[in-house]
Design a protein around this nucleic acid. Sequence first.
DNA 1: CGTTTCATTTACGTTAACGTCAACTACAGT
DNA 2: ACTGTAGTTGACGTTAACGTAAATGAAACG
Lengths: 139, 139
Amino acid sequence: MTNAQPDVLTIREMCEAYDVTPRTLRFYEAKELLFPIRQGTRRLFGRRDRARLVLILRGKRFGFSLEDIRQLLDMYHTEGSNQAQLEKTLDLGRARLAQMQAQYAELEHAITDLMRQLTDGEHLLAGKRRANEDNAIRD
Amino acid sequence: MTNAQPDVLTIREMCEAYDVTPRTLRFYEAKELLFPIRQGTRRLFGRRDRARLVLILRGKRFGFSLEDIRQLLDMYHTEGSNQAQLEKTLDLGRARLAQMQAQYAELEHAITDLMRQLTDGEHLLAGKRRANEDNAIRD
DNA sequence: CGTTTCATTTACGTTAACGTCAACTACAGT
DNA sequence: ACTGTAGTTGACGTTAACGTAAATGAAACG
């Protein structure tokens, strides 16, 4: 069972698969968020890089900076790291988890809030519609 | 019941209450996110502006841009707007609500994901600790 | 009335996260 | 050998969201 699939994507394939530009992928490499292998001069993105990219894009949607994300990404290949480094990474992960849980709670609140405003607005709109009909009758 | 409390804050008071800088508040005014009244040359922020500021800061934490937020803020003083404008605002609000609900779901997923990585990492760390003890015995 | 103490306007600086352009290079097909 | 078609590396440009500094004005205090 020698897992012989190539399983690497070119930069174009990555862009289409994850809806990003080449510039973005090169930028992420420069910032050490991704580590594509080189076949000659070209980049090839393996499964590890794709998993990382998913986490990057996800983190961005939650409002985290790339630097925030970069530090956290170590969480996903802790295998080779030493004890001290691992502890630091775990601390960082726990802190991030707390942030996300807080954000989760706040997001729930914001959602119910917005829903209330929406129904209020819809009632207001219904009122205006009736008013318009009344005017039409009088014309 | 003539509600005679002044109920306005100076820029400093605002900064301390909401942990922002004066620059930020002036910037938000320039971008038409806030509309402080003027007493002579100075700004005074009333209840409406404070409510808006809360929503602004909240929106930012969820990764929305100030321009995104500005458009949505109309949701919270729909009283005077006309029918067409109100419909547009409501559409925008519904779209935003959908985004936030999606984000909510994704955030939940991300949280369980991160928790799993954390426990994995902690087990790994425990293993390294035991290995270290074994070494100590042999020394 | 002079001097701190805030606040204001104007303007230029800064950082993050890319966009855009120019000038190569590597290879594939004809 | 010529022509595309990706891909690459600089290098500079851009936008958002403020920071920072300078000059001015108003207000309160002794």
